[in-house]
């Protein structure tokens, strides 16, 4: 994990450095910034030093848990702390939608393979996958407003309360819901043909137990893996969904920081995201070993 973090932060650092434009642009009103201001700005943020030295100074602070102060004189850690709870809430809602709706739809389709319910799930997931998130988001807002449901499902989420995040959570989860449903269906259909399912039936078990215990456990292994990774990436915020619903989350913060050449904020935020993603991956790997004994013992 540590090499990944060092590598990721270094690449980020170089990329931000390579961006055209200077961070002090536009900070002095309509005119060019005076040379003295630029000098002071550079000294303040170590920008006068060579790139590698800048990076090492940054890394030194990073290992002490200090993400630095951005070009607006705010501590990056505070900027993140304000926004992270909203992002986590949004991600959790999206994941809950994926688990409940995705797996249920996949199970229904898999058990009724080749029948109407199956076709319904297959076609509707295809439609959902094909539509970009900003379309789903905007259409859902329009629909809610048309039906006068704005009190129940607010179409904006400036404060980031759970209630406000339900509609955006559904929109954010919709893409993966379709994927989870298809993954569940495919794996269920495949596992229902397996020899051990025939054994389970030969044991005189009820259909519910054959599917619910014997087949489901095997079928959900890849699904759980996917959901775990997806949670890791959702924790990095959702730029499009956040913009549509006016959510003050991590995604929007990173987007703004990039457009403002605020390198310290970008590198700090993304470092945290990399960490979160790595932890999520680690958890998925551990979980995988628990779900499939063949992995941990081999």
């Amino acid at each position: 994990m540590i090499p990944v973090i060092i590598g990721a932060t270094f690449i980020l650092f170089v990329l931000v450095f390579a961006l055209p434009g200077e961070p002090w642009q536009g900070r002095c009103g309509e005119r060019e910034c005076p040379a003295s201001y630029i000098e002071a700005f550079k000294r303040e943020y170590n920008l006068d030093k060579p790139l590698l030295l800048q990076y090492l100074l940054y890394l030194g602070k990073l290992v002490q848990g200090d993400l630095g102060v951005n070009f607006y004189n705010n501590r990056v850690i505070d900027e993140l702390a304000v926004r992270y709870p909203t992002t986590v809430k949004l991600a959790l809602i999206a994941i809950a939608v994926e688990i409940v709706i995705g797996i249920a739809a996949g199970l229904l389709a898999g058990i009724n393979k080749g029948r109407f319910l199956d076709s319904l799930v297959v076609v509707s997931t295809l439609v959902v996958v094909s539509i970009p998130v900003f379309v789903i988001g905007s259409v859902s807002q329009w629909g809610v407003l048309q039906l006068h449901l704005n009190d129940i499902f607010p179409v904006t989420a400036a404060q980031g309360t759970i209630k406000q995040l339900i509609l955006p959570g559904f929109v954010l989860g919709s893409l993966s819901v379709a994927y989870v449903a298809r993954l569940t269906r495919t794996n269920l259909v495949e596992n229902l043909r397996a020899d051990y399912v025939r054994t389970a039936r030969a044991k005189g078990l009820s259909t519910g137990r054959v599917i619910g215990v014997h087949t489901l456990r095997n079928s959900l292994i890849p699904v759980v893996t996917f959901i775990g990774y997806d949670f890791g990436s959702l924790m990095g915020g959702a730029i499009v969904t956040e913009r549509i619903f006016n959510i003050n989350g991590i995604g929007g913060f990173i987007f703004r920081s990039i457009s403002q050449r605020d390198g310290v904020s970008v590198v700090g935020a993304v470092t945290v995201l990399v960490l979160v993603y790595l932890v999520a991956n680690l958890l998925v790997d551990l979980l995988y070993g628990v779900l499939d004994p063949r992995i941990s013992h081999d």
């Binding site: 051990y196 054994t199 389970a200 030969a202 005189g204 095997n218 063949r294």
Partner: peptide, 25 residues
């Protein structure tokens, strides 16, 4: 029939590796 199956008439399959469920002891 389920009460008969497995209890009174039982069956052994060819390839026990695939006939046993891989994820349960």
């Amino acid at each position: 029939r389920r009460k008969v199956r497995g209890a009174q008439i039982a069956m052994i399959f060819q390839d026990a590796l695939s006939a046993l469920n891989p994820v349960f002891p």
